[in-house]
Amino acid sequence: MDVLKFLLIIGTGLFFIGAFGFLTRRNILTMLIAVELMLNGAALNLLAFNRYLWPDRLDGLFLALFIIAIAAAEAAVFIAIVLRLYRNMRTVDVERVSELKQ
């Protein structure tokens, strides 16, 4: 099996494991980790495509770098919001965060 296929399988696998985790887990921090998995799957895909299909330009590499940076920024805002949520409601379980009418 060539390397590109192998990397793409891992990347896609990470993405769908993340999506599954996001939809089934109820702890907000675990959901953040799941989203990070999805983003890393996409970044890995970009890197693999760049290295093996389009090696003459570095578009994919740069986008992957930016995805990592943005994921960090997103995590920072995310955790600030979760801290606030915990102070207000004393829980990080999304099932119990349901003040608003369903």
Partner: peptide, 22 residues
């Protein structure tokens, strides 16, 4: 609660977008 739901949904959607972009 609103902020939590906002960031969860926007993070999820941007992950889907970035996979589509890849």
């Amino acid at each position: 609660e609103a902020a939590t739901k906002m960031i969860l949904s926007s993070a999820f959607s941007s992950a889907i977008l970035s996979f589509g972009i890849s």
